[in-house]
């Protein structure tokens, strides 16, 4: 099977290419902004971290601080969140047999946002004792359960019904978020800006949390990658091939919700990344989840990092990243939806 081997080698090459592009993007983006720093100076700063700060004497003394404490945490957080959301998209699409499924279209992002807004509201009134990520996770899980319950008959659900119930639940949740905003009164700005999605003012602990959870998600997804391929035959056939669909579904849906919740609690609602990236990568590497998962993570990271750099350093004023991805991703969603309709009725 030369065709398979060829595309296998090509896929390894592509993965390497994406990884290189990501590292390059991180270095270049670290230099971009109000204070311009050349890529070589960024590298000097990075190398100096492992070298007790040696070799930085003939450089602007604020560069190391700007790179290490201001830009890099934000850049890494955006890259990790982008990659993680793309992988969650892959997981949801495979497990629900629907190429239009992602945390955003299923309403899970809204659920996490509702939970997080509630936590923010409580924090405004009750001091900061409520954990935003925990509330986001509970909101995400409850929403997932509600969406699946709405869509299923006798434990089975049709995939388009699932998107519909996702939309319905998300609509209710956004009304709920509106109510929370109303309750927040004068402090409403905190919630609104956070909801629109932003990577501004991220620190190294944000990087650590998102990285840890994303790695867990990535490993769980990769562990089940081949089972997810089999799953595309439908649950009945997959079970007859030895895949424990019920268990796998539970584990992956919970994992996906957890990753989504952490992403949302760090950066607000950022939609459509989980939809666009897997779709694009599927066109390049094919539907095999063993290839789709790592390449989607890298591509998602590059996309989000680039988008965030554009809004941070290129645009005259910072546009919330969630607004930017929705403006770009929404029309793309329409395009996929439309072309799939075409396939079905032609």
């Amino acid at each position: 099977m030369t065709a398979n081997q060829m595309s296998g080698r090509r896929c390894a090459g592509l993965t390497f290419l994406l990884l290189t592009a990501l590292l390059l993007a991180i270095v270049v983006a670290s230099g971009m902004g109000y204070l311009e720093i050349s890529p070589s100076e960024v590298l000097q700063v990075l190398v100096a971290q492992f070298n007790d700060g040696a070799g930085l004497d003939n450089m602007n003394q604020s560069f190391p601080f700007v790179v290490m404490e201001v830009r890099l945490p934000r850049i890494l957080t955006s890259a990790i969140v982008g990659g993680a959301l793309a992988v969650v998209g892959v997981i949801f699409q495979a497990i629900l047999l629907n190429p239009l499924a992602d945390p955003y279209t299923l309403g899970i992002s809204s659920g996490a946002a509702f939970g997080a807004s509630l936590a923010l509201l409580l924090n405004l009134t009750l001091l900061s004792v409520v954990s935003v990520p925990l509330f986001a996770f509970l909101g995400a899980l409850a929403t997932l359960a509600a969406v699946i319950y709405l869509a299923s008959v006798d434990g089975r659900f049709a995939s388009n019904t699932l998107i519909l119930s996702g939309v319905i639940v998300a609509a209710i949740l956004s009304a709920g978020i509106g109510f929370i905003k109303y309750m927040a009164d004068e402090q409403v700005g905190v919630i609104i800006f956070w909801l629109m999605g932003s990577f501004a003012a991220k620190n190294w602990s944000d990087v650590g949390v998102t990285l840890a959870i994303s790695l867990v998600g990535l490993m769980v997804a990769f562990f089940y990658a081949r089972d997810l391929n089999i799953m595309s035959l439908g649950p009945r056939a997959a079970e007859s091939l030895g895949v424990d669909c019920v268990r796998m579904r539970k584990i992956l849906l919970v994992t996906g919700s957890l990753v989504t919740a952490v992403c949302v609690s760090v950066s607000g609602i950022i939609g459509f990344v989980g939809l666009i990236i897997p779709h694009l990568m599927r066109m390049v590497v094919g539907p095999d989840n063993r290839r789709l998962i790592p390449t989607s993570f890298l591509a998602g990271a590059i996309l989000m990092l680039s988008a965030d750099t554009v809004t941070r350093a290129v645009l005259p004023a910072e546009v919330p990243i969630g607004v930017l991805t929705a403006l770009l991703g929404g029309p793309f969603f329409c395009y996929i939806f439309r072309s799939r309709l075409g396939e079905r009725y032609v």
Binding site: L233, G242, P287, D288
Partner: peptide
């Protein structure tokens, strides 16, 4: 182990991904 003993040809088959 069961999957090495029994196989199933189901009636309905709709695959969404281009394998």
């Amino acid at each position: 182990e069961l999957a090495r003993e029994l196989s199933l040809v189901p009636q309905d088959f709709s695959i969404q991904f281009s394998y």
